[in-house]
């Protein structure tokens, strides 16, 4: 059941999006997120959906694969849509019991849904098309200036990359532990909240023990391969901005300008 989480997993490919410099993609993602919050009418939202669709097509990551990533946040999505739908004042269209649906509510719920879906798809598109190591590089080099104010950029980037590598391993392990304890009669499905939280102990303790064991092993393996922090490291695939990156950045500014114009003027 936990294996369905595909959020953040690299999807191998050779598309133009895959080949973009991770810094370009990071910047694009950031600007895209900003644009989603700037947009406040259907034209601007339409433009951002179209832009995302274009990039998804260019990336050749199958759309069904992208949708699986949404599954993990489906609950949050539904809750926020419902909140907007029922709790917005305005012209009442339908009302029953204490609930009323307003025209403004529908509008906001739809916008909220579009915004969230675009946000998640946009952000996950970056991790789908960028290997964690490239991402690490991108963060390290793109945010390198933060080192000046003593932010351990390299360490943060390395931790992220390792976390991404171990997510599938630990989810598989979690699955196995749940099965093993279920085989010992553990009941994880019934009872009230407290009872169920208590029932998680036999799952969580082995998971933590295993995570710590793996962390210890990994630290040793890294040391054995001469890891000693970011100092003096070189790269097999050093980042270099190519023509396509500059083109992507120009398009990005055009897009951002377009969204602002659409939002302000219309």
């Amino acid at each position: 059941m936990f294996r369905d989480i595909t959020l953040g997993q690299y999807y191998p490919g050779q598309s133009i999006i895959h080949r973009l410099d991770p810094r370009t993609k990071l910047l694009w993602t950031l600007v895209y997120i900003v644009s989603l919050f700037v947009a406040d009418n259907k034209y601007a939202y339409g433009a951002s959906v179209l832009a995302l669709a274009a990039v998804i097509i260019l990336s050749s990551v199958p759309f069904t694969h992208m949708l699986k990533g949404l599954k993990a946040v489906l609950v949050i999505l539904i809750i926020s849509v419902l909140f907007n739908l029922f709790l917005t004042d305005g012209r009442v269209l339908v009302s029953f019991w204490i609930f009323k649906i307003t025209l403004e509510g529908i509008r906001r719920a739809v916008f909220m849904a579009v915004r969230l879906v675009c946000l998640i798809l946009g952000a996950s598109l970056m991790t789908y098309t960028t290997t964690p190591n490239q991402l690490t590089d991108g963060i390290e080099r793109g945010l390198g200036f933060l080192k000046l104010i003593r932010v351990p950029v390299h360490e943060i980037a390395m931790m992220m990359s390792i976390a991404l590598r171990f997510i599938p391993i630990l989810t598989e392990e979690l699955d196995k532990i749940i099965k093993a304890q279920t085989a010992r009669g553990a009941d994880l499905e019934s009872g009230n909240f407290i009872k169920r939280a208590k029932a998680m102990t036999p799952i969580l303790i082995p998971l933590f023990v295993s995570a710590f064991r793996r962390a210890g092993d990994l630290a040793q393996a890294m040391e054995a391969r001469c890891y000693h922090g970011g100092r003096g490291r070189t790269r097999m695939n050093p980042l270099s901005m190519a023509g396509r990156d500059y083109a992507a950045i120009i398009i990005m500014f055009a897009y951002l300008g377009g969204i602002i114009v659409l939002s302000v003027l219309l």
């Binding site: 532990i177 093993a180 085989a183 102990t201 036999p202 303790i205 082995p206 023990v209």
Partner: peptide, 17 residues
């Protein structure tokens, strides 16, 4: 059934808690 058919997984020691 779960009591009658006891299943021991691979590396079961990791489920001790």
């Amino acid at each position: 059934l779960r009591a009658s058919v006891g299943l021991v997984f691979q590396y079961p020691e990791y489920q001790l808690f």
